[in-house]
């Protein structure tokens, strides 16, 4: 009898200990497929890319370590600086427009509307279709002779000759930014809409009773409540815009006069058609500091403040 009673607890302990141990072993085992993929196809190439930036590798030829030579030549390359400028201009202009218009669209969709679900579904379409394919449509819309926009403006009597959308420096920059904004608005709007729906209407009712105007309600209720999600959405948006490749590759290939060349397109051009893998990798690596800045911004933006969760200050 005594033996049995003594045996039971040890049996139980080993059962729970087994679960505890299995948890870690099994956890690692379950991680193996993802880890293999990510280490082999993501972490390793990331390191390889940094290494390539320090070599003079060309297509078909093993490179040797040349230190900072690639970066030195980029530093003295006026095209590289033009491209950095273009990338920043493109990212900042497109992000501001996407944020402004996206927030506006989100506020409109948050109104009490008939066919709300339909509107929401339709609005997201530009984000769903492949960028390259919609960019091809924009290519045709921005055609120098048969642009539908030029046609409409001429019909309205606003201009007399077709606009040279992609052939002129300023126009080309504006056109690619417009196409990027077109594609980015839905993502910003739908994400912010999800944030808006979490704001309790009673806050707005209380503010209205206290005599707040629409602007005050927006400025002191909607915006502060939305700020954590704005930070994340805009970080993603900045990240994707900064590293954009497809739209430029389809619409202008960097032209005219390299005025729309971005870092990603320059990196591609130097590495794949140009064959200088080392130099292309160096340009890609030069994007990393900017991306890190965006991620850090997101990290600090993500820190929810207590009052946003209903706690005290």
């Amino acid at each position: 009898m005594a033996n049995v009673a003594a045996a039971e607890p040890t049996h139980k302990r080993s059962f729970w200990a087994g679960i505890g141990q299995g948890r870690h072993v099994l956890g690692i085992a379950f991680m193996v497929p993802a880890a293999v993929f990510l280490l082999f196809f993501l972490t390793y190439p990331l390191g390889l890319g940094v290494w390539l930036g320090f070599t003079d590798t060309r297509i078909g030829r093993e490179g040797v370590f040349i230190g900072l030579e690639n970066y030195q030549s980029l530093w003295g390359d006026s095209l590289f600086w033009l491209v950095v400028f273009n990338t920043l201009l493109y990212t900042i202009a497109a992000s501001i427009l996407k944020f402004g218009l996206g927030l506006w669209l989100a506020l409109l969709l948050n109104e009490n509307l008939p066919f709300k679900a339909f509107f929401r579904a339709v609005v997201l379409l530009p984000w769903v279709v492949p960028t390259v394919l919609s960019a091809i449509a924009f290519w045709w819309i921005f055609d120098s002779q048969y642009s539908i926009i030029s046609w409409a403006l001429i019909k309205m009597g606003l201009i007399s000759a077709p606009i040279n959308f992609l052939g002129d420096v300023t126009n080309a920059r504006a056109s690619v930014i417009a196409a990027n904004v077109w594609r980015g608005i839905p993502f910003v709007a739908i994400s912010l809409l999800a944030g808006l729906q979490t704001i309790s209407p009673s806050l707005h009712e209380a503010a209205t009773l206290d005599g707040a105007t629409n602007w005050q309600r927006f400025r002191y209720i909607t915006l502060p409540m939305l700020s954590p999600i704005i930070a994340v959405v805009m970080t993603f948006s900045v990240l994707f815009t900064f590293t954009d490749f497809q739209l430029i590759y389809v619409l202008t290939r960097g032209g005219p006069l390299n005025s729309t060349h971005l870092m990603a397109t320059l990196s591609f051009q130097r590495a794949i058609p140009g064959g200088s893998l080392g130099e292309g990798a160096a340009i890609a690596v030069a994007m990393i500091p900017f991306l890190l800045a965006a991620i850090l911004f997101s990290y600090f933006g993500l820190q929810r403040r207590k009052w946003q969760q209903g706690g005290a200050d």
């Binding site: 990331l46 890319g49 994707f240 590293t243 870092m263 794949i272 893998l277 994007m287």
Partner: peptide, 13 residues
């Protein structure tokens, strides 16, 4: 991590 900074090393791999 965006594909734009991975495609060159991945191409080599």
């Amino acid at each position: 991590v965006p594909p734009s900074i991975l495609f060159i090393p991945l191409a080599i791999m």
